[in-house]
Computed example of a mutant assay.
Amino acid sequence: MDLRLDALSVVTDGRSLVRGLSLEVPDGQVVGLVGPNGSGKSTALRCVYRALRPSSGTVWVGEQDLARLEPGHSARTVAAMTQEGGVDVDFTVEEVVALGRAPHLRGNRALGARERDVCARAMDRLDIGHLAHRGVLTLSGGERRRVLLARALVQEPKVLVLDEPTNHLDVRHQVGLLSFLRGSGLTVLVVLHDLNLAAAACDRLGVLCEGRLVASGPPAEVLTTQLVGDVFGVRASIVSHPLTGGPQLLYSLDSTR
């Protein structure tokens, strides 16, 4: 299912956080939002998973205005893992993951065999099956991130929205997560701070600066020395990845402007 941000703007306390953002995420592709801190990336994502109502503009899922969908339908269409998402009560891992099935269940109906299987597969895919009976408050930050992503996956959404999903993950789980996203078949909009990971994982990138989209397209076209200097304020050399041919950035410690 396509996702489209159409002239999205967010104004809070007289300050424009997102300014006329238009961005397309084609069906089955991974599109990354990158940009400096405070550029509007997370704010834009909040509009997509309906934690924030845009001041103007529309979020389209397929041919439907997301704001007009009833909450249950919306939750079955778009799932999110946010920066702030967490669990304050010491539920077990399997209990937290099972919460993702709520949009598909009526009332307090218990999980059936299919629901339990969906949860088990998601936990195994994210390497947390062995943690199923652990309390989430006993987990490391990276383990909790994987639990929250599993919860989003068991919603069986058409669109997945992820805000810095690799935070707290070790290298193996970063690579595994991004590889999974590339092969998932889901429409994915993801905020990433690591430009090299973004270049490797995303079909397209959108670059935000001061709330505006300043560039979009395939990573090889977007990530130029000029853009990285202008937007991020650092000097970088762009080289080809020896295995994939994709762009990779090399920084030096004295590269800040």
Rank of each mutant, 00 (worst) to 15 (best):
M1Q: 09
M1F: 07
R4K: 10
R4W: 10
L8Y: 06
S9M: 06
S9W: 03
V11H: 01
R19L: 10
L21F: 06
L23Y: 02
E24D: 15
E24V: 11
V25N: 01
Q29A: 15
G32S: 12
G35K: 03
G35A: 14
P36I: 14
N37R: 08
N37K: 11
S39W: 05
S39R: 01
K41N: 02
S42M: 03
A44I: 07
R46A: 11
Y49N: 02
L52W: 02
P54V: 11
P54T: 12
S56Q: 14
G57P: 00
W60R: 14
G62I: 12
Q64E: 15
D65M: 11
L66R: 11
L66A: 15
A67T: 09
R68F: 12
S74V: 14
A75S: 13
T77P: 00
T77M: 03
A80T: 02
T82F: 01
Q83Y: 08
G86E: 09
V87W: 00
D88P: 00
V89M: 05
V89D: 05
D90M: 03
D90R: 02
T92K: 06
E95V: 06
R101N: 13
R101M: 10
H104F: 08
R109S: 14
A113K: 09
R114Q: 13
R116G: 09
V118F: 04
A122R: 01
A122P: 00
D124G: 15
D124A: 15
R125G: 13
L126W: 03
I128D: 09
A132P: 00
H133G: 14
R134E: 11
G135S: 11
G135D: 07
V136Q: 00
T138P: 00
G142K: 04
A150K: 06
R151G: 05
L153V: 12
V154N: 07
V154K: 05
E164I: 08
P165V: 13
H168L: 09
V171R: 09
V171F: 13
R172H: 14
L177Y: 11
L177I: 14
R182G: 09
G183N: 05
V188G: 05
L189Y: 03
V191I: 09
L192A: 02
H193C: 07
D203I: 10
L205G: 05
L208Q: 07
E210I: 05
L213I: 07
V214M: 06
A215K: 02
A215V: 08
A215H: 01
E221R: 11
V222W: 02
L223F: 09
T224R: 04
Q226K: 09
V228W: 00
G229V: 04
G229I: 04
V231L: 01
V231R: 02
G233F: 09
R235H: 13
S240E: 14
L243Q: 13
L243S: 13
T244C: 06
P247R: 04
Q248I: 15
L249Y: 03
L250N: 01
L250M: 09
Y251C: 01
L253H: 14
L253Y: 11
S255F: 04
